[in-house]
Simulated scan of single mutants.
Amino acid sequence: HMGPCEAECPERILALLGDTDDPGALHWRRRCLERLARPTRQLEHGMHIRLPNPVRFTDGYEGDEFIVHKRGRKIALAKPGSGYPSY
C-alpha cells in the first residue's frame, strides 16, 4: 500500500495511464496534476530572485537574494555584487 511520494510525473505520462479506482493512485494523480497546474517562470540570465528562506553556503555566506547567471544549459546563482560565478 505504499505509493510514490514524489508527484512530478510529466503530463505526457499521466495521459497514458488507464482508469483506476485505487484511492492511493487517484491521490497521486491529483497531486501530479496540481503541480502541473501551478504557474512557473523561466529563470533568465541576470534575473534577481528571492528565495522564501535563506540558504547557507560552505563559504559561510547566507542569503535569500541571488542573481541568475546562465551559460548554455548551466545555471548558477551568485550573491548580489559578487560578479559572475565560476562554472
Rank of each mutant, 00 (worst) to 15 (best):
7 A>I: 03
62 E>N: 02
37 A>R: 10
7 A>K: 01
35 R>T: 08
60 G>M: 08
52 P>Q: 08
55 V>Y: 07
43 L>S: 08
3 G>M: 06
33 L>F: 03
42 Q>D: 14
56 R>T: 11
55 V>F: 07
7 A>H: 15
76 A>G: 01
47 M>Q: 15
42 Q>I: 08
17 L>K: 02
25 A>D: 03
87 Y>T: 02
58 T>N: 12
78 A>I: 05
49 I>P: 07
33 L>G: 02
73 R>H: 11
16 L>D: 14
67 I>H: 05
26 L>V: 03
4 P>T: 05
70 K>F: 00
40 T>G: 02
42 Q>C: 10
73 R>L: 10
73 R>E: 07
74 K>M: 07
59 D>H: 08
4 P>E: 12
7 A>P: 01
66 F>A: 03
62 E>W: 06
16 L>G: 10
84 Y>L: 11
75 I>Y: 03
54 P>E: 10
68 V>W: 01
69 H>D: 08
71 R>Y: 00
28 W>D: 04
45 H>N: 14
52 P>D: 01
60 G>N: 04
17 L>H: 05
77 L>F: 09
76 A>K: 04
14 L>S: 01
63 G>F: 05
52 P>K: 07
82 S>C: 04
55 V>K: 10
13 I>P: 05
65 E>V: 09
57 F>E: 14
25 A>I: 02
66 F>H: 03
11 E>M: 05
80 P>E: 07
49 I>M: 12
8 E>G: 14
61 Y>R: 02
26 L>K: 15
82 S>F: 06
9 C>A: 11
53 N>S: 11
36 L>Q: 13
30 R>L: 09
76 A>N: 10
